[in-house]
């Protein structure tokens, strides 16, 4: 199922690419595609602060850059603090008449490790302080850049190099940390989930997040063929199945109000999603059943929050 505006795509989106081709992402990288979509909406009047990780590495091999807009990378865990500094600098300098107010937007990019683990504290701080910025978490569910180590965003049952499946283990034995809900708990004006398999939905959300005054958080599921042990040509399909099975529901929370972007009264079985990914290949029906039950339970809660009967 493609979204309704599927035909004649370029007429609906700008053909401008603010994230230049020639980047060194793996073949079939869902994250590179997500960055491309996000950057199309961000346009030129933006400053991007990037965490260490896949995106930074595949886009900035010195002395070249894939970025067409001002971009800064410093460390792994401090994106939200750096973007706080950039935003505050503009605020102060505009107020003091040192520069003109040209409506520049401030955006932070981080992977799931940089967001859910090592950079959670600075993110929480920046959201709490209410800086006017958009944070995009590109979630590929493990530390892919360093070689597929587990993060707190890795799903239950997945194989990773530091939570491998073995005789005594199913792989990841903890449930995926719910970052969007942590963002919601900060009472920020805008939180959303997105996936590049649904490009127009993703781009709409980036636009809304960017226009919102105050912190906005978008959590983007980014299929990783390398780490998920999937075929590169199935990146879009896997993302779509993540949504259709309820594993990764797409929704928005605008000023505390939940809205499901796509609702599935009957979810596809999670097995449909997992069968294309060898990271789940070792799982028994018993474990898959446990995951199925959890997904349904969580999806039901989400539907309730969104007021869907």
């Amino acid at each position: 199922m493609m979204e309704k505006y599927s035909l004649f795509v370029p007429r609906l989106v700008t053909t401008e690419e603010n994230f230049a081709p020639g980047h060194r992402a793996c073949i079939g990288c869902g994250e590179a595609l997500a960055v491309r979509h996000v950057c199309k909406v961000l346009g030129k009047n933006v400053i991007i602060v990037n965490a260490t990780g896949c995106i930074e590495i595949f886009s900035s091999l010195f002395p070249q850059t894939s970025w067409q807009v001002p971009w800064i990378h410093t460390l792994f865990e401090n994106v939200s603090a750096v973007v706080s500094g950039v935003e505050s600098a503009y605020k102060a300098r505009i107020r003091k008449g040192k520069i003109k107010d040209r409506g520049v937007k401030f955006v932070g990019f981080g992977g799931d490790g940089a967001t859910a683990d090592i950079g959670l504290q600075p993110l929480s701080g920046a959201m709490e302080r209410g800086h006017d910025f958009l944070y995009c978490c590109f979630d590929n569910e493990a530390y892919m850049n360093t070689g597929i180590q587990r993060s707190s965003s890795t799903p239950y049952g997945a194989w990773t190099t530091t939570a491998p499946a073995g005789k005594q283990s199913i792989g990841q034995i903890t449930w995926k940390k719910n970052l969007p809900e942590i963002a919601v708990a900060h009472k920020i004006p805008y939180v959303a989930t997105a996936c590049p398999s649904y490009p127009f939905d993703l781009m709409d959300k980036v636009k809304r997040g960017m226009e919102m005054e105050g912190p906005a958080y978008i959590h983007i599921l980014s299929v990783c063929p390398t780490g998920w042990r999937s075929s590169p040509n199935q990146t879009i399909e896997i993302g779509r199945l993540a949504v259709e099975t309820g594993v990764f529901p797409l929704y928005e929370v605008i000023n505390g109000e939940y809205r499901l972007s796509f609702d599935f009264p009957k979810l596809k079985p999670v097995k449909e999603y997992m069968k294309y990914q060898r990271r789940f290949g070792h799982l028994t029906d018993d474990v898959i059943g446990r995951i199925q039950a959890r997904v349904e339970e969580e999806y039901l809660k989400l539907r309730e929050k969104a007021g869907v009967k």
Binding site: P21, R24, S59, Q64, T65, W67
Partner: peptide, 10 residues
């Protein structure tokens, strides 16, 4: 790096 999008030569 002062040349935007210079990676497109790759």
């Amino acid at each position: 790096v002062t040349e935007p999008g210079s990676a497109s030569s790759t």
